[in-house]
Design a protein around this nucleic acid. Sequence first.
DNA 1: AGCCAATGCCAACACGTGTTGACTTTCCTG
DNA 2: CAGGAAAGTCAACACGTGTTGGCATTGGCT
Lengths: 193, 193
Amino acid sequence: MQPERRSDATRAAILRAARERFAADGYQRATIRAIAADAAIDPSMVMRYYGNKAQLFAAAVDVHLRLPDVAGIPRDRLGETLVAHFIKRWEGDPSDDALLTLLRSAATDEAAASRLRDIFASQVAPVALAVCPDPAEATVRAGLVATQMLGLAFCRQILRLPPVVAATPSSLVVQVGATVQRYLTGELGAVLP
Amino acid sequence: MQPERRSDATRAAILRAARERFAADGYQRATIRAIAADAAIDPSMVMRYYGNKAQLFAAAVDVHLRLPDVAGIPRDRLGETLVAHFIKRWEGDPSDDALLTLLRSAATDEAAASRLRDIFASQVAPVALAVCPDPAEATVRAGLVATQMLGLAFCRQILRLPPVVAATPSSLVVQVGATVQRYLTGELGAVLP
DNA sequence: AGCCAATGCCAACACGTGTTGACTTTCCTG
DNA sequence: CAGGAAAGTCAACACGTGTTGGCATTGGCT
């Protein structure tokens, strides 16, 4: 379909460097010049191919969570499965830190925060809806899950809190998985007071 | 003790404005000029009284959690009590958003992250240690608590995720409190694999 | 080969930043 | 009242930022 431009290699190099810089420094601190230096090209190339810094950021965080299909998971193993999936996701390929990029930048950049909320609404909320018949209650459950999952990511990957960093993936899957499981399918007490 | 300098009012105004700006924008985006404008003084006053931006930030986040005394709380109410305390803490006086300031800035500023880790080690870990005899296990428990509490703060105050913002304090106390309770005193599965 | 668009590099602009130094005003003290 | 330190104001510096336009170079086409 696309005419295979000769500059595709450069475009990819810019995007790769941008993902790493944005993930490491967040939106503000990552500079066009630093990204261009990492990609070994001129800063003006970034502008030519991506317009401006905001559009480059948008391209760098264009990501989907690739959550596993809820239907294929035993109902009482949802928590562990989701935690295991996320840990593997952000511990794996370092060129794919889009989620960490968003988390880091969302603290100070409204556009990143908005994007993160979108991802939540379009990809986490449906999971809760699939296991909970009442939509209002499902939304509450999804919010609680986000609370725990983002907190885990923040403490382990960004704040690098020693005990959370030292914990093995398998122990986190058990301990945090139990919480997520309760938020999804357990008793919540009064849901709407 | 202190000689009651004549400039104390200005110093206080700077500190108040700095706390609000840092809390709203984080370390990078908050500018000396904006802080000075809020305090209705000249930017150079900030430098005279606080040296530089980093030292002003340090002064603005010099905070302690004022956690309630663990001894006075029934063991099976620790989770709810802690969650209730934190919610009241950061939902209350807006001039005292030091915790939010740290949380927001820690995502991109290593000094803020370090300070937040210190607060954790010196004020949250001891709580876990008071309810758990084994120090290694207590550290793990404290890390899990941080995971949930910071995740709640992040989703509610910074990301402003709609369902978490909409939730009432009392429902959060019940739902998240149960998680914190389990992290502190409940069964964790294998703790050190 | 010779054109010409695509690609890349260079220098510069306009702006906002933290920070500094010199000057003026205020107010306490002798 | 006179002196002087403290408090406050003003203008500027040095630097890094995103962004722009002009110029050289490349490479595929007829």
